[in-house]
Structure formats: structure tokens, C-alpha cells
């Protein structure tokens, strides 16, 4: 149990998928201009990460990993080189399915979250989390904790960035540094702040 809590805390703060591994930067930079959309996208990413990471875990461990097909009588087969293409396809399919389910059952949620869902299919954070999950050899429960934690960490980062950028509008930034430049530098400062959590051990 301790292990799971520490994976969760670590993926939210110290190993933040955005600030420590640079994943999901594109949408982070373009969406953080606006507070409301940042919150919306943050929720959508958390949700999709929490669902796709365990699903990809199952796909990898029952279909792709070396020897995973032994339940089908094919123990000698190693399909792990297909993991990139499979993960992308799984993510795209789940995003599409989630979009349809939300549309059917909660039109309100759909109208606030729906626009972001297609964007997420190609967000590096989602594929990155799946690949890290394989690389670090998590089990199913750990991968759920890792997926949810990474999503929350990403949301925390983008929402705080949106808040910082709101204040930055009134700051007197040197010419040439406005916009992209200062955003990168403040992201760097924020990443430093997040690293301070590395003293916490469970």
C-alpha cells in the first residue's frame, strides 16, 4: 500500500510528467493562456490517463510482452516491438469511445469537455505515461495509481501556469521575451519549485 501511495505522490510532484519529463508541452503552452480551458483540459487529461494507462497495461501484458500469448498456446512469440503502434491505437480508440459515452449520457459534460477530447489522442503525456509504465515494470494497481497521479500532476501544472500567465499580462516583460520566452522561463521556475518535493519519502 505504501508503495502505491508513494508512486502516486511521486507522479504528482517530483516526477511530474510535464515539469520533469517534458511531456504534453504543446497543449500546455497553447492552452494555458486561458484559465477555464486549462481546467477543462486538465480534467480531460486526468480522466483519459486514468483509463488508458491500465488498459494499455492489460494490452501489453496479455498480448504484446515476450511470452504473453502463452494463454493462446503461443509462448514463443514476442510482439513488444508493436507496442508503439498498439498504444497509439488503443488511446485513440478509448478517446473516441469516451467521447461517445459522454455525449450520450451527459450532454453538459460533453459541451465543456468534448472539444478537448480529440486533442488528447495525440498528447505526448498519454503515450508517454503508457511507455513509462512498461519501462518501469509497474503492476496493474501501480499503473492505475501512476496514470491518475500523472494526470493530476499535469492538471496542477497547467492550472498554475494559467494563473501565472494571467498575472504576467500586467507585467513589464522585456521586448522579445514576451509570450513564449517568458512562459518557458516561468515554467522552469515552477519546475524548480516542484523539485523541492523530492525530500518527501513515504
Amino acid at each position: 500500500m505504501d508503495n502505491i501511495i508513494s508512486i502516486f505522490i511521486n507522479s504528482v510532484f517530483v516526477g511530474n510528467i510535464l515539469l520533469a519529463y517534458f511531456l504534453g508541452m504543446c497543449s500546455f503552452l497553447s492552452v494555458s493562456k486561458n484559465m477555464e480551458t486549462s481546467v477543462g483540459l486538465g480534467f480531460a487529461v486526468t480522466f483519459v490517463l486514468a483509463v488508458t494507462t491500465p488498459v494499455n497495461w492489460m494490452v501489453y501484458h496479455y498480448l504484446l510482452a515476450p511470452g504473453a500469448l502463452s494463454w493462446a498456446g503461443l509462448p514463443g512469440i514476442d510482439l513488444s516491438f508493436l507496442k508503439l503502434v498498439t498504444f497509439i491505437a488503443v488511446v485513440a480508440a478509448i478517446v473516441q469511445a469516451v467521447e461517445m459515452i459522454i455525449d450520450r449520457f451527459s450532454p453538459f459534460l460533453y459541451s465543456s469537455l468534448g472539444v478537448f477530447l480529440p486533442l488528447i489522442a495525440v498528447n505526448c503525456a498519454i503515450l508517454g505515461a503508457a511507455l513509462f509504465m512498461v519501462e518501469r515494470d509497474y503492476n496493474l494497481i501501480e499503473s492505475i495509481a501512476y496514470g491518475t497521479g500523472s494526470g493530476l500532476g499535469w492538471m496542477l501544472a497547467i492550472v498554475s501556469m494559467a494563473a501565472i500567465r494571467k498575472k504576467l499580462k500586467y507585467a513589464n516583460v522585456p521586448e522579445g521575451l514576451e509570450g513564449f520566452g517568458i512562459t518557458m522561463i516561468s515554467t522552469g521556475l515552477m519546475a524548480m519549485a516542484f523539485m523541492l518535493f523530492s525530500g518527501i519519502t513515504m
Binding site: 521575451l177 513564449f180 520566452g181 522552469g188 519546475a191 524548480m192
Partner: peptide, 22 residues
């Protein structure tokens, strides 16, 4: 060697490039 440095270096490079281009 830590992650934040990469963000800050990119920010400064962008500053340099924009100043030179303008």
C-alpha cells in the same frame, strides 16, 4: 543537469533569436 534548466535555456534562446530577427 536538472529539468528546469532546459526550460530556462529554451526561454533565453527564444529571446536571443527574436532580438536578432527584429
Amino acid at each position: 543537469l536538472l529539468a528546469p534548466a532546459a526550460f530556462i535555456i529554451i526561454g533565453l534562446l527564444v529571446w536571443l533569436q527574436r532580438t536578432l530577427l527584429n
